[in-house]
């Protein structure tokens, strides 16, 4: 059977936050699709709800109304535990501040998601080495995050994001904390992942350079997409 061409389907999603008695709408009635193999950039002013939307798609936040289908799974109906195991197999995360675990080596950080799979130690090692090769950091795998530059840390984070071969990669300002050169490296890498491995990438960014690498740019403002 042919898999559907849309990997993410967002249907009438709304979300608000509560500050005391005040209800702050963050996303209002958003509907859109992301095609399989897409490299999408979401831009917009600070506070427009970009991170919130990304988090919803990645299953780390809950919406108020609507539904989100990822590869035909309605993730809004999953329980916390189901969602956790879904995340571990289906989503790769790249954060602005890399978010590596400081007490673990690069290798161990990349290996982290694999502990939740049934892979043997040997298989895990093979996967981790393949992922580190992808980001050209095999020779730094025994270093701890504090011994790596920001760009290198972000590449380790990317290796960690792809090591489980997830359905989608979500990146929240992946170059936001990097210098120009490192940012370019990271973006090159993401482009390659998209082109060579056909990974679907959803990237939130403020940086027009970064957004320029994507196939498609969408603008979010006050919780709504603007054409």
């Amino acid at each position: 059977m042919e898999s559907p061409s849309n990997i993410v389907e967002i249907r009438r999603v709304s979300k608000c936050y509560h500050r005391g008695d005040l209800v702050v709408p963050v996303l209002t009635d958003i509907t859109f699709d992301i095609a399989r193999g897409e490299f999408l950039a979401i831009m917009g002013p600070s506070g427009s709800g970009k991170s919130t939307l990304l988090n919803l798609m990645a299953g780390i936040d809950r919406l108020d109304t609507g539904s989100i289908l990822v590869d035909d799974t309605d993730i809004t109906t999953l329980s916390e535990t189901e969602l956790a195991s879904w995340r571990s197999s289906s989503v790769g995360f790249i954060f602005q501040f890399y978010n590596l675990i400081p007490v673990l080596t690069a290798f161990e950080n990349v290996e982290l998601p694999l502990h939740l799979t049934g892979l043997s130690k040997k298989e895990r090692r093979e996967h981790v080495e393949a992922a580190l090769r992808m980001v050209s950091l095999t020779e730094r795998m025994d270093h701890s995050p504090s011994q790596l530059s920001g760009g290198e840390q972000q590449r380790v984070a990317i290796a960690r994001a792809i090591v489980t071969d997830p359905l989608i990669l979500v990146a929240d300002e992946p170059t936001g904390d990097l210098d120009r050169k490192s940012a370019a490296d990271v973006l090159d890498l993401m482009e390659r992942l998209n082109r060579e491995l056909n990974k679907t990438i959803i990237m939130v960014t403020h940086d027009p350079h970064a957004a320029g690498r994507a196939h498609l740019i969408r603008h979010l403002e006050k919780g709504e997409f603007i054409p």
Binding site: A58, I60, E80, T81, A84, S85, R87, S88, S89, F93, F95, N99, I101, P102, L112, P113, L116, R160
Partner: peptide, 14 residues
């Protein structure tokens, strides 16, 4: 707290 959140993001549970 941030690290625990990262682990949860990766699929680790409560």
């Amino acid at each position: 707290i941030g690290e625990y959140a990262v682990l949860k993001t990766l699929g680790y549970t409560g």
